[in-house]
Design a protein around this nucleic acid. Structure first.
Length: 482
RNA sequence: GGCGAGUUGGCGGAGUGGUUACGCAGCGGAUUGCAAAUCCGUGUACAGGAGUUCGAUUCUCCUACUCGCCUCCA
């Protein structure tokens, strides 16, 4: 199947053709591990996880290498570690930095797993690649693309004529824009740091330029080279990284004499209720915050998939509710038609587990997830277990089902409802049943209204009443009937 | 200031040089004691202006508005 991807480098969609079909390689810039992942951090994770899944479907699960790094050299991590040390925490600063990084990485993987993201093939950390970074910097200096000044190693931007090509800028224009930091030791205001000196309360490593630590950009060049080799297929990240981060990666790797990414992909930013998510606006929250509010990871993921990755995405509570309804409807249909771990295992074993070709084609068109979801609405009209396979396959492929035993994304899953609540509800339903049997409609409706006030939806299906907790489920209303 | 993205029906959101998705909400009907659920039916909307064209929402230009990046925030 042909996959088309929008390549930032050429500003258009082009047919994807991997260097090696048996080993498709993708590098995505991962998080700086200083704190819980906020909702914006989740966008590239979900976008490129979806791409990872599509590539695995197309080329085979064992033929895709996905590298996503952890940036664990960062002043914010240092600050936390230093604060802990000053508060009396045991251990060296290095220990405390490592501790903070490990803690954050654990949270990150846990939260992203809740969003249905597969773990990348490799998750290198900057601190594991200091030697490779130093080697690359030495190489750049030897080739005249970098220089040393006051304990810093700096990249000489003017030595790379293509600088700015990826992000569509020119060095002269940017300097004219006059928003560049001017450090006295720089030859040119646009030159960026490859290595910088560390003080005693900052982590550091010995280098030919003194005790210090790497600049931000060099880690990705070094890790991509080490793990993916001289050239690879796809490099992804948020579009805020296009400049300077990715531009600098290209400059470093190219000037060091290596190939780099063929296709550059950038996801657009996230907004919250129409505004940029920021602490100052008070609309800042983490993935964990949402999960703790009872929003299922699958619902969060679906909200992201509802917007194409190259468009700004607005997180709104209305969309959260819409996504929840979509998933609930699909899960209800599948459950009604016997979908369970056993059924799915049987379908897979019998070879009946197959994708909808049209849907995969839509998805392959630059990751058109909204288009794929539209197709799923059509697939959901099937009314047999077998006929629903394409829908089920799509849900699994898009990472919207992690466990076929749990087809429930309600904020109050049935198995979490206290026993006394169930007892009260079932008593009321029984009384209503008796009232209906004697055609006392007034009493029957009164009882249903009572349940309705507690957010319990009562339906009479085939002569018997069933109930389910709704969005506004609030058992406290039933307290006095206990 | 520099660079870039966007503006589609009540809402969300694809797509296309001509047959105008899809979902939600709404409306009408079936069904129901009444509901819910379900099913059937129902909406020519593409920011404004000019141009190219037999024909533009889709291509070009201009205008307005929104947003992002330029600050180790994805």
């Amino acid at each position: 199947m042909a996959i088309k991807l929008y390549n930032t480098k050429v500003r258009k969609r082009v047919e994807f053709s991997p260097i090696d079909e048996n080993n498709v390689q993708m590098y995505v810039c991962g998080p700086t591990v200083y704190d819980r992942a906020h909702l914006g951090n989740a966008r590239p994770v979900i976008v490129f996880d979806t791409l990872f899944r599509l590539l695995r479907y197309t080329y085979g699960a064992d033929h895709v290498t996905y590298v996503r790094n952890f940036t664990d050299v960062d002043d914010k991590i240092n600050a936390t570690a230093l604060a802990r040390q000053q508060a009396g925490a045991a251990g060296t600063l290095e220990d405390l930095i490592a501790e903070r990084s490990e803690e954050t990485i654990g949270w990150y993987l846990e939260d992203m797993a809740a969003l249905g993201a597969l773990e990348p093939t490799a998750m290198p950390r900057a601190t594991q690649y200091i030697a490779q970074m130093i080697a690359m910097i030495e190489d750049l200096i030897a080739k005249g693309h970098a220089y040393v000044a006051e304990g810093h190693a700096l990249f000489r931007v003017r030595s790379f004529t293509e600088y700015g090509a990826l992000s569509g800028r020119s060095v002269d224009d940017m300097i004219a824009g006059a928003r560049v930091e001017v450090a006295p030791y720089k030859e040119d205001p646009m030159d960026f740091v490859l290595w910088k000196p560390s003080s005693d309360d900052q982590p550091g490593w010995d280098s030919p330029w003194g005790h210090g630590r790497p600049g931000w950009h060099i880690e990705c060049s070094a890790m991509a080279l080490d793990l993916l080799g001289d050239a690879f297929d796809i490099h992804g990240g948020g579009n805020d990284l296009t400049f300077p981060h990715h531009e600098n990666e290209v400059a470093q790797s190219t000037c060091a004499g290596h190939g780099f990414a063929n296709v550059w992909m950038h996801n657009e930013m996230l907004q919250v209720e129409g505004k940029k998510m920021s602490k100052s606006l008070g609309n800042f929250f983490t993935v964990r915050d949402l999960l703790e509010q009872g929003v299922a990871g699958e619902v969060i993921r679906l909200v992201f998939l509802m917007t194409h990755y190259r468009k700004p995405m607005d997180w709104t509570d209305a969309k959260r509710a819409e996504a929840q309804k979509m998933l609930t409807d699909w899960f209800d249909i599948l459950r009604k038609h016997g979908y369970s771990p056993k059924t799915v295992a049987q379908l897979k074993a019998s070879g009946d587990w197959a994708a909808d070709i049209e849907l995969m084609g839509v998805l392959g068109n630059d990751l058109n997830t909204p288009g794929a979801l539209a197709r799923m609405h059509v697939l959901a009209k099937a009314r047999t277990t077998f006929g629903l396979v394409p829908l089920a396959h799509a849900l699994e492929t898009l990472g919207l089902v992690s466990d076929w035993a749990v087809l429930d994304v309600s904020a109050s899953p049935r198995d979490e409802i206290p026993d006394w609540v169930t007892v009260v509800i079932e008593q009321l339903i029984a009384r209503r049943g008796a009232a209906r049997a004697s055609k006392d409609w007034g009493e029957a409706d009164r009882l249903r209204d009572l349940l309705s006030a507690a957010g319990v939806q009562v339906s009479d299906v085939a002569g018997t009443a069933s109930w389910s907790p709704g969005q506004d489920f609030d058992p406290s209303v039933l307290e006095e009937l206990k």
